[in-house]
């Protein structure tokens, strides 16, 4: 089974953790334990293929800025999350992307731009077109865009699946079964 290392990035308070928890845990939230080995691993079927997703969520440690490079180095695909209710979180993504490209040393890094909290339409300050525009300006091929709501469970699964598809598109050859997925790290 192919393994995918997906990294969730974005400023504090954009609801990253809610997306991750929603995705890995689904409805069984009561038994959630964040400290165990496979808290953030999930096996899913994408387009008829079994995949093991390992999700790295930086929630709570956004201010340890020195550690970002490492997350980026290890990730194969990225969810860049902002909140549609906070302009600054949207603005932060440009730098984040630059940093990813620099660490990966390539322009082709699979990413999904994620406008979270879209259930809060009343408080919206970042337009949907703004998000779409930014994603296009990044790189049409390698950057998708979706608005999500962890609260009302909208598009949560989709962002992770789209990212997997994007990684597949970039690296179509199925990696030979290696113990660690890290063998397929994109350079």
């Amino acid at each position: 089974m192919r393994e995918y290392k997906l990294v969730v990035l974005g400023s504090g308070g954009v609801g990253k953790s809610a997306l991750t928890v929603q995705f890995v845990q689904g409805i069984f939230v009561e038994k959630y334990d964040p400290t165990i080995e496979d808290s953030y691993r999930k096996q899913v079927e994408v387009d008829g293929q079994q995949c093991m997703l390992e999700i790295l969520d930086t929630a709570g440690t956004e201010q340890f800025t020195a550690m970002r490079d490492l997350y980026m180095k290890n990730g194969q695909g990225f969810l860049l999350v902002y909140s549609i209710t906070a302009q600054s979180t949207f603005n932060d993504l440009q730098d984040l992307r630059e940093q990813i490209l620099r660490v990966k040393d390539t322009d082709e890094v699979p990413m999904i731009l994620v406008g979270n909290k879209c259930d809060l339409e009343d408080e919206r300050v970042v337009g949907k077109d703004q998000g779409a525009h930014l994603a296009r300006s990044f790189n049409c091929e390698m950057c998708g865009f979706l608005e999500t709501s962890a609260k009302v469970k909208l598009n949560v699964q989709e962002i992770f699946f789209d990212l997997v598809r994007m990684i597949n598109k970039k690296n179509p050859e199925t990696c030979k079964k290696s113990k660690k997925g890290s063998k397929c790290v994109l350079v």
Binding site: S17, T20, V21, Q25, Y32, P34, T35, A59, G60
Partner: peptide
Amino acid sequence: TDLTMIDTA
């Protein structure tokens, strides 16, 4: 991170 996740979940 653990506490953030517990709080979210």
